[in-house]
Amino acid sequence: MRGGISRSSAAIISLAIALSLILVYFAAKGGLGGHPSASIVGIGQFIVNNTYNVFNRTYWAGSPEAVTSIIWDYRGFDTIFETTVLFAAVMAALLLVPGGIRGRVQGAGKDEGLTLIVKTASKIISCIVVVLALNLALRGYISPGGGFAGGSSYAIAPLLLIAGLSVFYLVRLGYRLSRAIGLRTLGLVGLVVVSSLPLLYMGYIIQNQAKPGSMFPGYPVFLGPLYLGGSLIYMNVFEFLVVSMEFIIIFIAMFLLDRGCGGSA
């Protein structure tokens, strides 16, 4: 139907608006469950009071970013298991690639891609995305961000290059499956080392700062004029490596399979 919205799409839009209004009504009436109890609010107050408490460093995390402190210090186990889940998912996906995961891409393939405008724009935007992702990962212990957010935004850059140019351009740029797997393993080893180093000093696992009841003195927060933020910066960097490389592995494997050269990848 020309010159206006068709009847079915108008029906869908009005249905969506009605549904969201009904949901808002029930949420305002308390029909979707009550508010969290006061005992849970106390945990939030504890974390806000202690995250960067320079005067009383008994339970501090050494970072003004409360979210990163919760993710890598107060609730570190949760993030470790999240990384494990992602690791297992990527390994299971790689098992689907026929012919194994070793070796390298043989034929460079024809560079089809889209038009010249799209190619140029995706190159420019992917450079900007890389800078932004590094900023998110490396400053994750000062401002909002962190390893997971930085890694998943870094993975957008090769995805853009795949969409705009082709997966063979990415391979020629140096993104190899074997190289990505190696860097991923390096990140995992780094996570293991940083989280289990306090065990040598009779401390807890994933310990960041000195705590009562453990001999571990804590990772350095200040190194001369530099502000390091304890173990959070190492954790963020290694998590960035792990997450970005896992996404890149998935993208390369998926698009190489799509081109029918899974055996040689």
């Binding site: 889209l114 405008i117 799209v118 724009a121 995706s122 420019i124 935007i125």
Partner: peptide
């Protein structure tokens, strides 16, 4: 600047 780079490219892809 970012919108000025991306928006015409998106329109270009759709029209193409």
């Amino acid at each position: 600047l970012l919108i000025m780079i991306t928006a015409p490219v998106g329109t270009h892809i759709l029209a193409n």
